[in-house]
């Protein structure tokens, strides 16, 4: 127990016994469950899990069924992180007092939340957990929209995206504000580890999750989760969209250690133009009309600028 699981290749990884069950009610082709499986399979230890209100929660705990084979709780939209933080504190105190029945077992505390529950609603609660230094991991399943309630914009929704509260039409090109840099905000808490992951780069993801489990203190993971319903693409293309997100550098994969040291963990061999990423999704369809084409150019410039910033941060080691 509590040694790091040895995962060299995918064949070895496939011997894991899943602790997340099928017949959940997530849409066909949903990336949420792929991310959850990669996180849960990265360790053999016991797990204490929670999920904020959102697609993952409503679809995996439809009464009278549960899809979780580990202790799991849902309590509110905002406080999945505080729920596991409380459980972690209880575990720590009982251990100190010698009242644990199995003190040699070291459970991992993980909270899952969507981007709405992390970027907007649960922001203050997560910030509190990071500041208090609980030994937990918070995983954001970032699908850039409130998908569960019908596609309202969140502060993770990128510019130009058509959401139900920021629809594209004759007078508007959709969402007008840029995505919030939650990674930067969380890293500014000085937490030991923050990382961006993508389900298509499973090895990078498992490595980061295992590193997150091995450090003492709060860990923040931001995972891109292509949403077939709200991003409007065919369910079979989920992994293709994740590939596009990482290879166009719209969603770069990097980690920040101790709030300072930034490492880029994946550099695409061939960087794909952002246009291809936008063209693959129905929510950006209107950007290809003549009057909005300038936005695609702005997108590319923004992504290039962010990539340049990350590279300079990595070089300067500050």
């Amino acid at each position: 127990m509590s040694e790091i699981k040895n995962i060299k290749n995918l064949k070895e990884f496939s011997t894991s016994a899943d602790r997340f069950e099928g017949a959940n009610l997530l849409c066909p082709g949903c990336a949420h469950s792929i991310i959850v499986r990669e996180v849960l399979n990265a360790t053999n230890d016991d797990m204490v899990l929670s999920a904020s209100t959102g697609c993952l929660e409503v679809c995996t705990a439809v009464y009278p069924y549960t899809s979780w084979d580990a202790s799991w709780i849902h309590i509110g939209f905002e406080n999945s992180s505080t729920a596991v933080a409380g459980a972690e504190t209880m575990h720590k105190v009982l251990k100190r007092k010698g009242r644990l029945k199995q003190p040699d077992r070291n459970p991992k505390f993980v909270s899952f939340a969507g981007d709405g529950a992390s970027y907007d609603i649960g922001f203050q609660w997560i910030s509190g957990c990071m500041e208090r230094g609980h030994n937990i991991m918070h995983v954001v399943l970032d699908n850039e929209v409130y998908a569960n309630t019908g596609g309202q914009r969140s502060s993770s929704t990128p510019i130009g995206s058509s959401a139900t509260t920021s629809p594209a039409g004759k007078v508007s090109y959709g969402e007008k504000k840029n995505k919030k840099d939650l990674m930067g905000i969380m890293a500014a808490h000085g937490i030991p580890y923050a990382a961006q992951v993508s389900p298509n780069k499973w090895k990078d993801m498992v490595k980061k999750i295992q590193h997150g489990f091995s450090v003492e203190g709060p860990v923040f993971i931001n995972a891109v989760s292509p949403c077939t319903t709200e991003w409007k693409f065919d369910p079979k293309d989920t992994m293709h969209l994740a590939d596009l997100a990482t290879d166009t550098l719209v969603f770069p994969l990097y980690e920040i250690i101790d709030g300072r040291e930034l490492n880029i963990t994946y550099r695409p061999k061939n960087v794909i133009p952002v246009e291809e990423y936008l063209a693959a999704q129905g929510r950006f369809k209107h950007l290809f009309k003549d009057e909005y084409k300038y936005l695609i150019k702005e997108w590319q410039e923004r992504v290039d600028a962010q990539w340049a910033y990350l590279q300079r941060r990595e070089e300067s080691r500050v």
Binding site: L10, K11, E12, F13, S14, T15, D18, F20, E21, G22, A23, N24, L26, P28, G29, C30, A31, H32, S33, I34, R37, E38, P199, N200, W202, T238, M239
Partner: peptide
């Protein structure tokens, strides 16, 4: 070829893989 890509990317835990 038992590469297991389908196993890791299956969202519904429906690809059954035993002993690699």
């Amino acid at each position: 070829i038992d590469c297991q890509f389908c196993w890791i990317y299956c969202p519904d835990v429906s690809i059954v893989s035993r002993d690699k």
